[in-house]
Design a protein around this nucleic acid. Structure first.
Lengths: 113, 113
DNA sequence: CCAAACCAGTGACAATGGTCCATTGTTTCG
DNA sequence: CGAAACAATGGACCATTGTCACTGGTTTGG
């Protein structure tokens, strides 16, 4: 599909999609037309963009997402990919604990009310 | 204490402490000397900075931290403060769920290995 | 056919969260 | 005393994460 449709269906703006592409988060392929150079964005970018949106609000950086996507897609070495992803999972679990700690702190600060 | 000691003991750099102060996260008081204008940083800034460090790695913004600190310290209206903090707690719980979702996604991506 | 909508590419701009540097003045310690 | 360490202030600079605007070309619906 073309970028407009992808933007529409994913809820991610054209500019942001292009930004993500520049940063290696997604890939598009050259269109087949000989009159334009509109690029084609495969369907699976919808899944990816949806994941990115969730991950970004969860505070995961573009760089991390790039690592993850490369690990998943770049099947050059499956074992390496899994190692990368497991590491990210650990980081995220650590992050989750940190968030819980902050919640606890805040709860204590209003304790008794 | 002076800023150097605070930096040393909190593990937060001078520059960052000053940055936080400029942004209303902490407060210092004018020193008593008549020859210098070194500021005095009360002991409780240690607790605050420790909290900030954790909160920042948990992905909480400076603006949020300022809101929280103002709510806790500015006792102008206790009920308002509690409302603010409860709202932040909700946001954080939402964030925690998001992080869990991303973890799930990642786990599925390496499922079976 | 033609205007409106779309596309690519570029570069400027903005907010956030720091970090670094230079200058000037103060304190501290050997 | 004098050098080294420390403090205050101010501004420059950096990466990250987008967003906006402009140009020039393409497609599409009425």
């Amino acid at each position: 599909m073309r970028i407009g449709e992808l933007a529409e269906r994913s809820g991610v703006s054209r500019d942001t999609i292009r930004f993500y592409e520049r940063n290696g988060l997604i890939r598009s392929i050259a269109g087949t037309s000989d009159t334009n150079n509109y690029r084609d964005y495969p369907e699976d970018n919808l899944t990816a963009l949806d994941f990115f949106s969730k991950a970004r609000t969860a505070g995961i950086s573009i760089a991390d997402l790039r690592d993850i996507m490369q690990a998943i897609a770049g099947s050059c070495d499956r074992a390496d990919a899994i190692t990368v992803i497991r590491a990210k999972i650990s980081e995220l679990q650590e992050r989750a604990t940190q968030v819980q700690n902050v919640i606890k702190f805040l709860e204590q600060s209003i304790d008794g009310d």
